[in-house]
Each structure stands twice: as structure tokens, then as C-alpha cells.
Amino acid sequence: MIRPVVPFVVAALLFGLGVYGVLRRRNAVLVLMAVELMLNAVNIVLVTADTTVRAAVRDAGLTHTGGVFALFVVVIAAAEVGVGLAVILQLYRLRDTVVVDDLDLDAEPEGAR
């Protein structure tokens, strides 16, 4: 027997920490880490909800849906990190900074080829 409220509250707190990190951090890599915290909070909710409803679902083909969705979220998070890091590295190469406050997106990059 488990109490589902424990992992649910953990997920809510992790999501709050992720929101805080995205708004607080100025370094783009740290912003990505905070986004990972939020995605993991969503995964905990999916897995816990799956455990909670498993007893109520009678159709055997519909159990473990939350786990499957959590796997999909993991794949999408991996894709997001891949593209995000490529953008950050290119940004660093062109503008010499990863501080999101210093970015002037209208400016002509100096190192543009």
C-alpha cells in the first residue's frame, strides 16, 4: 500500500522549483536544467496517476498508459535538450555569451558568416 499524495506533492514542489529556476536564472544552460526539473515533475504525476487508477481500470489493455506517456515525455525531453544545446552552442559561437538577458535578437551578429 502506498499513499499517492506523497509523490504528487513531490511533483508539485519540483514543478514549482522548475518555474522558479526558469524565471530566476540568467545562464541559458541553467534555464535548460530547470526545464528538465519541470518535465520530470510531469513524469512523476503521470506515473503516480497510472498507479492510482490501475486498480480501477478493468480493461487490461488500458493499464500502464501513464508509464507509456512518461516514456514519450522522456523522448521529447531528449530531443529538446539536443536542439536546445545546439542553439546555445551556436549562440555562444556567434555572440560570445549564454546570458539570456544580454541577448539583442535584432542585432547583426559580429561573427556571422
Binding site: 500500500m1 499513499r3 506533492v9 514542489l13
Partner: peptide, 23 residues
């Protein structure tokens, strides 16, 4: 914003699930 969303969601989950146990 962070504490608001985190604690708000936590309160929502607590009110929805209480101290119930599941198998």
C-alpha cells in the same frame, strides 16, 4: 510565481487525494 504554482498544485493534489492509500 514558483512558490505560487508549486504550493498551489500541491494544495490541489492534497485536496484531491487526501491521505488515501492504494495498492
Amino acid at each position: 510565481v514558483g512558490a505560487g504554482s508549486g504550493l498551489g498544485l500541491a494544495a490541489l493534489f492534497v485536496s484531491a487525494y487526501g491521505w488515501r492509500a492504494v495498492e
